[in-house]
């Protein structure tokens, strides 16, 4: 039994991992683009971007999943996402990327804006170009400041992936729950918890290591 459960849960966990990794792959860079938009000098860009961030951060991810999964089908005719093969997974991925890009963008913005203007001025007075100032002076200081909040957000993402089940993406909890109906046993659910704990534990170690690496300056 243990072997069957483990195999089934591993299958679900693979989906969880895929959703997790692809969300990060797209939302970490997209968040930076959005943060530049939210800091733009031009109100015509800044205000809409800030509005979108406000909507995305102010509504539940669960709601966004449902709207993004069912919305296009109702507007453009069914079936919208299923036409893409792994439709439900992609709908979930799109929702997660939008949601997490907005959260990351706010962290980036906070990090960039927290850097003292004197750092830019010192670089400029030494004759450095704008990009030299950003890449050689500012960037690492921003990275150092945003590692803790980004880590928090990433650990939250590990657990948030379970929300994908509302649109029937067979992630690990979905698989664990199937044993309640099928075999009348509940312990596989606890077993899924172990997967989460181990995975977030490993991530915590990784982020701790990065923070320590960046601890050589203040």
């Amino acid at each position: 039994m243990l072997a069957t459960v483990t195999a089934t849960l591993l299958g679900g966990f693979l989906t969880t991992l895929k959703l997790f990794a692809l969300t990060l792959l797209f939302s970490l860079p997209l968040g930076l683009v959005i943060s530049f938009g939210s800091m733009s000098r031009h109100a015509i860009l800044r205000l809409p971007v800030r509005f979108i961030i406000w909507v995305v951060r102010g509504t539940p991810l669960m709601l966004q999943l449902l709207v993004i999964y069912y919305g296009p089908g109702i507007i453009f005719g069914n079936p919208f996402w299923n036409g893409l093969g792994e439709g439900r997974f992609i709908a979930a991925l799109v929702s997660f990327v939008i949601n997490y890009s907005c959260y990351f963008s706010e962290i980036y913005r906070g990090g960039i804006q927290s850097i003292d203007i004197g750092q830019y001025e010192a670089g400029q007075v030494l004759g450095l170009s704008r990009s030299q100032v950003f890449f050689r002076v500012i960037l690492l200081q921003v990275v150092k400041r945003i590692v803790p909040p980004i880590s928090n957000e990433i650990i939250t993402l590990v657990k948030d992936t379970s929300l994908a089940r509302v649109i029937a993406v067979y992630e690990i909890i979905w698989e664990g729950q199937s044993f309640i109906k099928g075999a009348g046993i509940i312990w596989p659910l606890f077993y899924t918890g172990v997967f989460y704990l181990v995975f977030s534990g490993l991530l915590t170690l990784l982020f701790g290591y990065i923070e320590k690496k960046l601890g050589y300056f203040e």
Binding site: D116, G118, Q119, E121, A122, G123, Q124, V125, L126, G127, L128, S129, R130, V137, L140, Q141, K144, Y216, F217, E218
Partner: peptide, 25 residues
Amino acid sequence: SDKAVREKTRHFGLVFQSFNLFPQY
């Protein structure tokens, strides 16, 4: 222009009240 300023600024040096050293170096 950015380029002209970069060239000109090299003729002057500025020491700030608050140092503005680069912390990671």
